[in-house]
Design a protein around this nucleic acid. Structure first.
Lengths: 255, 255
DNA sequence: ATGTCTTTGTGAACGCGTGCACAAAGATGG
DNA sequence: CCATCTTTGTGCACGCGTTCACAAAGACAT
């Protein structure tokens, strides 16, 4: 319900699928590269390869935006850059605040990808009084007390939370109360926000855990050829024998 | 047939859907919190709320792992923590290397979420000779020349790339050649890897761009609601005044 | 034991995203 | 102007993921 809502139920806004929106930045980056190399036009096949997706998918994605290609030729790079930028809302300047200037917050403040794409770091905010005034990435850190004033004075609608987990929800609440309606959360916590506020989560350890799963599976497949010893964990499972308990064990449970 | 390893059908391993795997870390985190508070059992409804998902989805996810719940009671927290950890492969210790010790790399090295979840930072690697030997998060940075030796000596199978975009692909190639089979990529580039290597991408600016899209859409809806009858004249927002909800585009087509 | 109550586990329906395959559209050359 | 060639745009089918709704399973009280 109110937690981490990422999808749009009443998405009749323009009918652009969420999956497509998530790929638009990918296309935009590839197109920017082509633009810098002064490539005039690009085919769906070439652009798809540069963006790392399927060409049919790319064409379908673009079809949601309109017919911006020329059959037999391809897409005009500059025109497409403009169209996607406009669609993503990057033709305007979005002021963002970063809350929590630890290692990660500092990394974000220094990250060049923001400024170059329509985002402007309006302020850095930290709860530690010792940080106040200290410049990070050329921007002086301000104390949390100023949060509400900063948000409203700068018309900030996008906030980035890079605080420890415990501080995330209170910071989130204050941001929302001050007028922020989109939040990028790096803290390992589930944020609860009112309706109408978008939250996206980036969780470093979750990504690693997903990799570990696949890694384990790969190791298990390899071990399929080799003999495996008995494992210790005594799983007391009620019934059935169908699915093997884990990836490296045959369906038959040795007694 | 045994070597047919194309994309990620993921079906044959155990039939755990990819979407479910991606949520397991979420459940695990919620369960860990309950465990620390000595909560013995939890219902699907409670756990789902803590993890920020639908309870039906959670039950279905768990059903892929087996029948670990007790009807009328719920799930045993400790038991479930163990089962999910084992499923994700977190009962073993995964050595990881972080390549590119800039702001982001340092943040990752300091991130506590790694060590606490079965991951161990085996080494920090950077191409800058001036960084060599300098300790970050208590670990001395080593020079890129040592990459292959570090990976093979430590049996590293998971690598984290936090380099600038230009260096990402070469670093990736070297990691893979040295034996790494899972890569977490923070550089804004599409990595090309051979079959059998998993890549997950975390892209900060893409997340922001997706937020900007929704933010723009929200602003457009508000404007449409305010100026009800007429098709919204996008206020003085700097961009060209044509992003009405209907989706028609200016006829100006640069050739 | 029996009945009631709670909560799981899952069959089934539905919607979304993906990829195929091809017709339409336009460029290009004769 | 016509034929051919290239590339887009999309109808369609399929599979995955989500959600509903409910029967089965067990706890608990009487």
């Amino acid at each position: 319900m109110a937690t981490g809502r990422t999808h749009r139920p009443a998405s009749r806004s323009r009918g652009i699928p969420e999956a497509t929106v998530a790929r638009l930045p990918l296309y935009l980056r590839a197109l920017t590269g082509l633009s810098e190399r002064s490539v005039p036009t690009v085919s769906s096949e070439e652009l798809a390869a540069a963006a790392g997706v399927n060409s049919a998918k790319l064409r379908k994605d673009f079809s949601y935006l309109g017919s911006y290609g020329t059959r037999g030729v391809g897409y005009d790079v500059e025109y497409l850059v403009y169209q996607i930028s406009r669609e993503l809302g990057l033709t305007q300047d979005w002021p963002v605040v970063i809350v929590g200037i630890g290692n990660l917050g500092a990394a974000l403040a220094n990250y060049g990808g923001f400024a170059s794409r329509g985002f402007r770091v309006a302020a850095l905010i930290d709860a530690d009084p010792a940080m106040a005034g200290k410049p990070v990435a050329g921007i002086p850190v301000q104390h949390s007390d100023e949060l509400e004033k900063i948000v409203s004075d700068n018309g900030v609608s996008i906030g980035v939370i890079a605080t420890p987990a415990g501080a995330a929800q209170p910071v989130c609440d204050r941001l929302v109360a001050a007028g922020v309606t989109s939040i990028l959360n790096f803290a390992p916590t589930v944020l609860t926000v009112p309706d109408g506020v978008d939250v996206r989560k980036v969780d470093l350890s979750i990504e690693l855990q997903i990799l570990a799963f696949h890694e384990q599976r790969k190791a298990g497949e390899e071990a399929a050829a080799a003999a495996d010893g008995a494992h210790a964990a005594a799983a007391h499972r009620g019934d059935s024998a169908e699915q093997g308990p884990d990836g490296d064990v045959p369906a038959v449970m040795p007694a």
